[in-house]
Nucleic acid binder design. Sequence first.
RNA 1: GGAAGGGUGGCUGAGUGGCCGAUAGCGCCGGUCUUGAAAACCGGAGCGCCGCAAGGCGCCGGGGGUUCGAAUCCCUCCCCUUCCGCCA
Length: 428
Amino acid sequence: MLDLKLIRDAEAEVRAALARRGVPADLDAVLGTDQRRRRLVTEVETLKRQRNAASEEIGKLKKSGEDTAAKQAAVKALGGQIAALDEELQRADQELQALLLTIPNLPHKSVSDGKGAKDNLIVRSYGQTRRFGFKPKTHLELVERLGILDFERAARLAGAGFPLFVGLGAALERALIQFMLDLHVKQHGYTEVSPPFVVNSAAMTGTGQLPKMAADMYYLAGDDLYLIPTAEVPVTNIYREEIIQRPLPIYLTAYSPCFRREAGAAGRETRGLIRVHQFDKVELVKFVEPETSYAELESLVANAEDVLQRLGLTYRVLALCAADLSFAAAKCYDIELWAPGQEAWLEVSSCSNFESFQARRAGIRYRTKAGKVDYVHTLNGSGVALARLMVAILENGQTADGAVELPEALAPYLGGVRRLQPDQNAKL
RNA sequence: GGAAGGGUGGCUGAGUGGCCGAUAGCGCCGGUCUUGAAAACCGGAGCGCCGCAAGGCGCCGGGGGUUCGAAUCCCUCCCCUUCCGCCA
């Protein structure tokens, strides 16, 4: 949510910044409703002031035993007016709030212009795109021969898009999670949390998934709860409606499964692990002081990159252009892994600075050194997402005979297993 | 799911219809003292909104009601604790 005062005081700048996103935002409605609301506030508060003064007087008169019936009747009439105005004010408040919730964040000045994903800038690359002496297989072909993933039986359970890992496939999934959590906790200074995987609508609104993304989320109607699309939601909302007392910055990391309906995405990349309804992810979340948030974004990206470097994978980092930024982000870097079987770059991390956008929605504040209360800046990034990470590991590590050499860094987490062999995995 | 008790400022905890935004203690900030710190003493300090300002309005889990007036009374929802039931 944008600062309403900023919209009022710097309307032209706000309009210009929003225009860079290339989507319309109804500032006129915001400003009009705001004006109406403020007029009502002034009006109703004048009346309330009168009522308070009169009530106090009645109290005093009663104490000295005087008759106050006439005065009471007059104040009661005032009360009626106040109630009517209050109702109108409440409506204006709700309207204004609803409007503000639909306005996206402003792109940071360092974010480039552009019309879409094609205009994102490659800011750096790591590793070489490996050349094979044979035609590299896709992860679909590999998992089939390795027997580490059972799509057919998985569909029986929940339909397409819900993977069922088997044997070393499941172990590899678990090893990756633990490897990443350990790295972030022991090397990067994050505190591990394990949050609820369902949240209420207030939490979803706080981080910006609601109201816009409602159709993309799994909703539990019986309990009015949502399955989380990312651990960002529960972890960021840990401090919802708080003035944080601990010193900033606060770094949290969490593993969680992520649930996404991917409404409207059917038919696109629906085979295999590239786009699924449920995947595992280790998430990084930061709560920081505003002055430091852009430096914190750089180190957040570095933390995510460290995962990939230690796994010996080839990746590139993109700085998203203004038009490709997600709703809540002011700046965002995507990290993409090279998948030789797909011959494609796969997004495995999205690291964003939301500035005070989420904090304002969620009411997450801190006390400045001067003792003032202000909104924190929140950041988060995947560190990293697993289904696609596994695709890259499989496709990059494959050998001519259909085996897969696993990254050395995972060996301690896999009981020393260094290689997946065709037709040797546990069977269902 | 059932029963009982409870949700007050960063924390603990008073307050049961009229200067209560709220007593007190701890913690916090500033000062005195000290080489420095601690202790002691003095002082300060909640959050939001409207307003150029003076000032005002609102907030005691959320919402609604009664009343001239509600932290205090009533209704409702949510949450926490304990006991019972069920159960990984």
